[in-house]
Structure formats: C-alpha cells, structure tokens
C-alpha cells in the first residue's frame, strides 16, 4: 500500500443517497480474477448509455469540469449492499484517492481502507457545501495527517479518523504484516481456546 499524505484536486459531486455496490460495480465484473483494471465497470450504468459503450453526457463522471478528479463527493450511506471489494477496486481504478460522504456502509468503508482509499466522513450540510464549492471544477484539499478538508475559500473542515487506520494509511503499512507481529498472543489464544473448546479444532 502506498503511503497517503495529502490530495489536492477537483472533485466529482455525485449527489445521490444510498448508492449501492451493485451500482458501483455490476455483478458481471465479479468474475474478475485480479484487483486491477476494474475501472471499466465502475458506475457502468451511470457512465454509459444503454448500449454500454457510449459515454453518457449527462453523467457527472463524464463532465469535463471534473476531469482528472481524485476526490469523489458522495451522498449518505454510500456503498451499501454487498461486500464486494470490487467496488473499492473499481473506484480506485478510476483514479480516485479520497471519498467524502455523510456516511459510508460498514463493509465498503473497510474495503476502501484496505486499498488505501481514504473515506472522509463529514456532516451532511458540510458535504452539501463542498458539492456547491466544486461545481465549476474548483479544487479542494484533503490532509489526512491534519485531518482536514480545505475548501476553495481556504476554510478548513475537520474530520475524525480511526487512529489505527490513519496510522496505517499515513505510513503505507501492510496490515497482515502488522498482525503477524502479534504471533505470540495469537499462539497463546489458540492454545487456551483449544483446551476449553477442543471441538473447534480439527485433528492436528
């Protein structure tokens, strides 16, 4: 995972509540065998017309004002539905590094973290304010270290972020590696559980 510091870019104002993971990436892309290249399927029904190949000119994602955006502004309960990590992979593959929403669905939130995508939670009115701010392609800045979003008028909005996740993102740490350092605690947990509930363990 790459270390994350700050991102400054224009943002796509995707103002829609309850965007589900089927909308983020349709089921057909779940046959994929790798983590990369899923941008082709991301928001497919929105980004393309019914033929599936002609870009939809009405879509925020195709608006030239937001070209190259690395920040996605989202509605409430973003990423609800299934556990498919393909949703996070698809969004990442489109070039986004930060998502800002009033709330994220639990599994999607953790999937984003695992892929170095920063999910910023701000109150609904502040997200709406940012949606207005970025309408003409103005840039905003997200600083994970300082836990702030800077508006085009330089105002700073503060956000909370879980310390463990923040530390891992800022340092680009491999989570499995972190856990493996707890090998001794893990061994002793298993030894104890095995003696209390032997039926949970198969033949050694």
């Amino acid at each position: 995972m790459d270390a994350f510091k700050t991102v400054t870019s224009c943002a796509v104002p995707f103002n829609r509540a309850n965007v589900d993971t089927d909308m983020i990436i349709p089921g057909e892309y779940l046959k994929w065998l790798s983590r990369t290249g899923l941008g082709v399927g991301a928001f497919k029904a929105l980004r393309f017309l019914e033929d599936g190949t002609t870009p939809n000119p009405e879509s925020e994602f195709n608006d030239p004002r937001y070209r190259g955006a690395q920040i996605l502004l989202c509605g409430d309960n973003f990423g609800c539905g299934s556990s498919r990590e393909h949703a996070a992979w698809g969004i990442k593959d489109l070039g986004f590094k930060v998502l800002i929403a009033p709330s994220f669905a639990d599994i999607f939130y953790s999937n984003c973290f695992k892929n170095g995508l920063v999910t910023v939670t701000l109150p609904e009115d502040q997200v709406q304010m940012l949606m207005e701010d970025v309408k003409d392609g103005a840039q905003i800045s997200v600083d994970l270290e300082a836990q702030t979003v800077q508006r085009p008028n330089q105002d700073l909005l503060h956000f909370e972020y879980e310390p463990f996740k923040r530390h891992a993102l800022l340092n680009g740490l491999d989570e499995i590696g972190i856990t493996m350092q707890k090998g001794a605690a893990l061994d002793s947990f298993e030894a104890k559980q095995r003696s209390n509930q032997p039926w949970l363990y198969g033949p050694a």
């Binding site: 556990s83 990590e85 639990d106 599994i107 953790s110 989570e175 499995i176 856990t179 893990l186």
Partner: peptide
C-alpha cells in the same frame, strides 16, 4: 457472523484474525 471484503479474506486466511472496531 459477518461479511468481509477480499483483503479481509486474505488477512483472515493468513492470520485467522481480523482487525476490527467494536460495533
């Protein structure tokens, strides 16, 4: 019992644990 993403599947296969925040 709860659903997890693919990176968590990998984490769980490797360590039989998950890093979780209490609900």
């Amino acid at each position: 019992a709860f659903g997890i993403g693919t990176s968590e599947v990998e984490h769980c296969l490797a360590t039989q644990t998950l890093q979780l925040k209490k609900s």
